[in-house]
Write a protein that binds this DNA or RNA. Structure first.
Length: 563
RNA sequence: CGGGGCGUAGCUCAGCCCGGUAGAGCGCUUGGUUUGGGACCAAGAAGUCGCAGGUUCGAAUCCUGUCGCCCCGACCA
C-alpha cells in the first residue's frame, strides 16, 4: 500500500480524551476514531490487525475441532426471559424499542436454542461451536479506548457435551487453544482462577495480562504458580486463638472510638483480638459479617456465599435495627440479622466487638458461647505480602486486563431452555455446556500496551498490519524514487507485505516519525547518500538497530529476517 | 448510580473570574524555498463558541435546564 493513497490519519498530538498508551497510540497511528462513547470506527490499519488476530483465533479454534458459525445479533427477548437474564443483565442489555428483541451481549441463549432444536441424541455430541462477532453491552461506563466498549468483537465458543468428563475435556482443549492464541499474538499473559459470577457454572479461569490500566485485581505468588482474581484469592493467615477458661463478657466504655485502629490503640490490644462488624443488606435480609481486626470483607465472596447481591446497609436503617451507629455494632444479642463470620475467627473467644450501644464495646466475647453464628466462610480479601496458599512465596497484588474467560457452565441454560438429549440408556438429560470468550479488540490493545515505546507502536510480526515500512527519504530525488519504486515492486512480488511511504512533499523527519509511530517490524530506508554507495538501510523497529545492505541483497535479507 | 472535570476551527488549547462584533499553534489550500528525525516564507479558507431558554442595550463570558464527552468510584455476564 502506498501511504500517499492510504487512509492512515496519523496525529502528532496526544488526544485529550485518551489516557492509556494503547488508546492514545491507536488514535495517533490512525487506527481508530470514537464515534460515540464506547463505539469505535476501525480504520484500514486497525482492520488489518483485527484480521490477523481473527485468523490466529480461527486457526487455533479449528485445531481443537471448533466449527465456526454466524449468529444473529438480534435475538427474541423471550429467550432471555426464559433464562432470567433480562433481569440479570438489567440495564446492560440493549433493548430494541419497536420489536420484542434485544441486541445480544453474548450468545448462550441462541446456542441453547439451536441445541434444543437440533441435538437430540448423545451420539451428536460433543460439539464445539464458535463465532467471532460483534456483541453489544450497554456498559455503564465505557473506558480505556477499545478495552471496554459498548460494541465489541468477541470470539465466543460453546461446547455441548453429554457428560461432565466431556465438559472437562472441552474446557481443557480451550485452555490449550487460548494459551496458543495469546502466545502467537505476542502477549505475555497469565491464567487466574476466577469467580464465575452471574454467568453461573462451576469452574472458570481468566486469561489476564498484567497492566496498570487493568480493571481487575489479581493476587499472584512470587513464583507465578498461584494466580487468582482478588474476588476469589486466598492466602495463609493465622487464625484466631482460643484461650482456655473464658471469662464473662464485660462492657467497656470507649468514647468516640469508631475504628479498629482507634479501638486497638485505646484498649492497648492487638487488632487480632478485635472482631469488626460489617453490615449489609442482602435482598430483604440483613447480614452482619464478623471479620478479624482490620481484615477487609470481600464482597464478591460474600455474594457467592449468599447467592445474592449485597449492598452496605444504610446508616439510618442500621441505627433503627441496632440502636447504635457503625463502629459500635457487634454480634452479641443482636436481632434481625443473619450473622456470618470469616473463617479466621472460627471458634474464637476472648474477642472484643461492638456493644450495639454507641461508645461501648464488649470484651471476652466467645463466638461459640455468646453468638448465634450462621456460618463460617472465607470472606476475607487477601493482602499484598501474605503467603500464597500453594507455598509459592508471598502474594503480589497487581492489576490486570481480562483477555479471555473460560467457563464450565453446566446445565443452567439447557435446563432453562429445555435443551435435552437421550443418553445411551434412553434417559433424557440436559446438554452440558461450556462457554469460552476472547475479546478481539482487547488482544490488539493489550499487544500495544505491552509493545510500545515513546515513539509509537512496536508490532510483533504476527499482528503487524504490514511486514515492512518502506521509506523513500527524499522523494524528489529521481534516483531515490526510482530505487524505492523498484524495491516496492520486488518486495511485493516476493510476498512481503509492504507499506510504502512514497509521499512527495513530506519531509524525511516526518516520515521517520510516522514510521516509528505505526511500528512495522522493519523499516527499509532508501536515502540519497546510502543509495549512491549502492546501499539500502534496514531499521529494526524493536531495537532501533540499523544495518546497511547492498541494494541487490535487500529482498533476500528482508525475507530472511521475516522467516 | 455517587463524586469530579470538560464542550470555542479538523486536532491541541487560550479567551469566561471582571459581558462590548472570535483567537493562537498544529493541520488544510495556493505560490515559492527546503528534504536523514514531526522544515521555512508569504497569502488564504475554515467556528450556529454543544443545544435550548432566561437576564441584559449587548452573552463564548452571567443564570436555569438539557445533551454529549472524559476521569475516579460502584457495576462488569
Amino acid at each position: 500500500m502506498r501511504l500517499s493513497q492510504a487512509f492512515v490519519p496519523t496525529v502528532k498530538e496526544i488526544p485529550a480524551d485518551a489516557t492509556i498508551p494503547s488508546h492514545q497510540l491507536m488514535i495517533r497511528a490512525g487506527m481508530v476514531r470514537a464515534l460515540a462513547a464506547g463505539v469505535y470506527v476501525f480504520l484500514p490499519l486497525a482492520q488489518k490487525v483485527l484480521a490477523r488476530v481473527m485468523r490466529i483465533v480461527r486457526e487455533e479454534m479449528d485445531a481443537i475441532g471448533g466449527q465456526e458459525l454466524l449468529l444473529p445479533s438480534l435475538s427474541p427477548i423471550e429467550l432471555w426471559e426464559q433464562t432470567g437474564r433480562v433481569k440479570a443483565f438489567g440495564d446492560t442489555l440493549f433493548h430494541v424499542k419497536n420489536r420484542p428483541l434485544v441486541l445480544a451481549p453474548t450468545h448462550e441463549e441462541v446456542v441453547c436454542w439451536l441445541a434444543r432444536n437440533h441435538i437430540s441424541s448423545y451420539k451428536e455430541m460433543p460439539q464445539i461451536w464458535y463465532q467471532i462477532q460483534t456483541k453489544f453491552r450497554n456498559e455503564p461506563r465505557p473506558r480505556s479506548g477499545v478495552l471496554r466498549g459498548r460494541q465489541f468483537l468477541m470470539k465466543d465458543s460453546y461446547s455441548l457435551d453429554r457428560s461432565r468428563e466431556g465438559l472437562d475435556r472441552a474446557y481443557d482443549l480451550h485452555a490449550g487453544a487460548y494459551k496458543r492464541i495469546f502466545t502467537r499474538c505476542g502477549i505475555r499473559f497469565f491464567i487466574v482462577g476466577a469467580s464465575s459470577g452471574a454467568m453461573g457454572g462451576t469452574g472458570s479461569q481468566e486469561f489476564m495480562m498484567e497492566s496498570p490500566s487493568g480493571e481487575d485485581v489479581i493476587a499472584l505468588s512470587e513464583d507465578g504458580t498461584y494466580a487468582a482474581n482478588l474476588e476469589v484469592a486466598t492466602s495463609i493467615v493465622p487464625a484466631a486463638v482460643r484461650v482456655p477458661g473464658g471469662t464473662a463478657i464485660e462492657e467497656v466504655h470507649t468514647p468516640g472510638v469508631k475504628t479498629i485502629d482507634a479501638l486497638s490503640a485505646f484498649l492497648k490490644v492487638d487488632t487480632r483480638c478485635l472482631a469488626k462488624s460489617v453490615v449489609y443488606r442482602a435482598g430483604d435480609a440483613h447480614v452482619l459479617v464478623l471479620m478479624m481486626g482490620n481484615d477487609s470483607l470481600n464482597e464478591s465472596k460474600l455474594m457467592a456465599v449468599l447467592g445474592t447481591d449485597v449492598r452496605p446497609l444504610e446508616a439510618e436503617k442500621l441505627r433503627e435495627l441496632t440502636g447504635a451507629d457503625g463502629g459500635s455494632i457487634g454480634p452479641v444479642g443482636l436481632r434481625g440479622f443473619t450473622i456470618l463470620a470469616d473463617n479466621r475467627l472460627k471458634g474464637a473467644n476472648g474477642l472484643i466487638s461492638g456493644a450495639n450501644r454507641n461508645d461501648y464495646h464488649l470484651r471476652n466475647i466467645d463466638l461459640e458461647r455468646d453468638c448465634a453464628i450462621g456460618g463460617y466462610h472465607d470472606l476475607r480479601t487477601v493482602e499484598e505480602g501474605e503467603p500464597s496458599p500453594n507455598g509459592g512465596g508471598n502474594l503480589r497484588i497487581v492489576r490486570g486486563i481480562e483477555l479471555g474467560h473460560i467457563f464450565k457452565l453446566g446445565t443452567k441454560y439447557a435446563d432453562a431452555l429445555g435443551a435435552m438429549f437421550l443418553d445411551e440408556n434412553g434417559k433424557e438429560s440436559p446438554v452440558i455446556m461450556g462457554s469460552y470468550g476472547i475479546g478481539i479488540e482487547r488482544i490488539v490493545a493489550c499487544h500495544i500496551e505491552q509493545n510500545h515505546d515513546d515513539n509509537g507502536i512496536v508490532w510483533d510480526r504476527a499482528l503487524a498490519p504490514y511486514d515492512v515500512h518502506l521509506i523513500a527519504v527524499s522523494a524528489r530525488s529521481a534516483q531515490v524514487t526510482e530505487a524505492a519504486e523498484a524495491l516496492y515492486g520486488e518486495l511485493g512480488r516476493s510476498g512481503v507485505d509492504v507499506l510504502f511511504d512514497d509521499r512527495k512533499e513530506t519531509s524525511p523527519g516526518f516520515k521517520f516519525k510516522d514510521a516509528d509511530l505505526l511500528g512495522m517490524p522493519y523499516q527499509v530506508i532508501v536515502g540519497e547518500k546510502n543509495l549512491a554507495a549502492g546501499k539500502i538501510e534496514i531499521k529494526e523497529r524493536k531495537t532501533g538497530t540499523r544495518t546497511l545492505v547492498p541494494k541487490a541483497d535487500l529482498v533476500a535479507t528482508i525475507q530472511n529476517l521475516l522467516s
